[in-house]
Design a protein around this nucleic acid. Structure first.
Lengths: 231, 231
DNA sequence: GACAATAAACAAGCATGATGGTTTTATATG
DNA sequence: CATATAAAACCATCATGCTTGTTTATTGTC
């Protein structure tokens, strides 16, 4: 047996989740620490999903990445799938939050929607599909195509997500009254962004991206103008 | 973990690739049989990719699906990666061919491009991203994000594919002179179709799909009209 | 003492690549 | 033509390493 493993087998304590650590003599210290550990495991899992993909995200790697032993991890999550379940829920909320943050303050409550508002929303949508959480979730979604267990978990979440996602878009554009047109525009944006994000553009990526985004902005403006006529 | 396959362990001879089988006393029978076996292995691999995903596509399952022993398979392809290499090349050609077939006879050589031509091309693009070969390739592409070995194989192929893909689109629309606009339109179509194909639309899938396709058609018409002005 | 958190060791299963051996086909030679 | 020999195709089995989930042991907290 040679020391072939470059990485230390010992869990590294480095990954302390970015939060204050509780003092040991406080009330509820144990509970809080437990929550922090859980959170660290979820973050570590997401990291693994991003760097290694779903298939290679093993329980050992998650534990190591979170800075604890595999046994400790299995104490918090009794199986690999149970970790994934929690990660899916975690990403569900996080992605919605990130989307809302990105889309905040776009529609001017005082006036009708301007070209500028659409430019901003397209840019936000593009940023959104480039977030780590998007790729991590996408990894789970892709795996669920051929993993029935995972599909059972992610399907209802996905359904709820799609609804809340659309509702958020509606909330962002309160001036846009024609709901059917708004939904159509929402689909256009999301499908385009997703298609771009998941395409391996081998040449002139930035220009093409820019061009598509610019054109999409004009499309949105057109749809909105037309929608206003049929209010 | 994966769906427990209750299939027989014994290789099934059923998967004879859809071609005439050569007579055994002919000249070059062995070579031809070898080619058929290789082909059967590639088809079996694609089948596995579709049904089980890249991670669960094991050499044992491929061999079983192709109707021969693992040993025999390892004779033709010395490693799992070598199978994937060949599958990637195989899909490369096949997908281009399928796209060309779908896009054949769209541009009327006698007249300018009609609305009908764009409707047809959008429909073809949609069919294209719903072919098995698209999903099989997508499985490989997704895996390559976190599998460096695979990435090294698929990257140059992807690059060549993108080029030939675009060239095909150009060849399909010889009347479309403004190349920059054509490329932009091509991107719009491909990103949209890809985004739709890879989205798990949980509600009103057919209507939304139909609506996006219809709107995309009008977009293409607009882009083309504008492109004609700047010829 | 009861319980939570952690660590370490264990057993079973699976996927991979490699080995050794058998059958079938091709080819060279008298 | 007959046949010896090389080459290709094929099959069964094995050793290794990895992953999972379980179990056993240790430490610290209420």
């Amino acid at each position: 047996m040679s020391a072939s493993n470059i990485e230390s087998k010992r869990p590294k304590k480095s990954v302390a989740p970015s939060a204050k650590r509780p003092k040991r003599n406080e009330k509820g210290w144990q509970a809080e620490k437990s929550a922090m550990t859980r959170s660290a495991i979820l973050e570590a899992t997401i990291q693994c999903l991003l760097e290694l993909g779903y298939a290679n995200t093993t329980t050992a790697l998650i534990a190591n990445n979170a800075g604890l032993s595999r046994g400790a991890m299995m104490h918090h999550f009794p199986s690999r799938m149970s970790v994934m379940r929690s990660v899916i829920d975690y990403l569900h909320g996080r992605r919605l939050q990130e989307y809302r943050d990105l889309m905040a303050d776009i529609d001017d409550p005082k006036q009708s929607l301007s070209q500028d508002a659409f430019t901003k929303s397209v840019e936000s949508a593009w940023r959104y599909v480039n977030l780590p959480s998007f790729f991590a979730y996408q990894e789970l979604l892709t795996a669920s195509r051929t993993d029935f267990e995972l599909l059972k978990v992610i399907e209802p979440v996905e359904k709820d997500f799609e609804k809340q996602f659309l509702d958020t878009a509606k909330a962002v554009f309160p001036h846009w009254k024609n709901v059917a047109r708004l939904e159509g525009a929402h689909d256009m944006v999301q499908f385009l962004m997703k298609g771009m994000a998941l395409s391996h553009m081998t040449v002139r990526k930035t220009e093409r991206t820019k061009h598509v985004k610019a054109y999409l902005t004009t499309i949105l403006t057109d749809i909105y103008q037309e929608a206003k006529l049929t209010e």
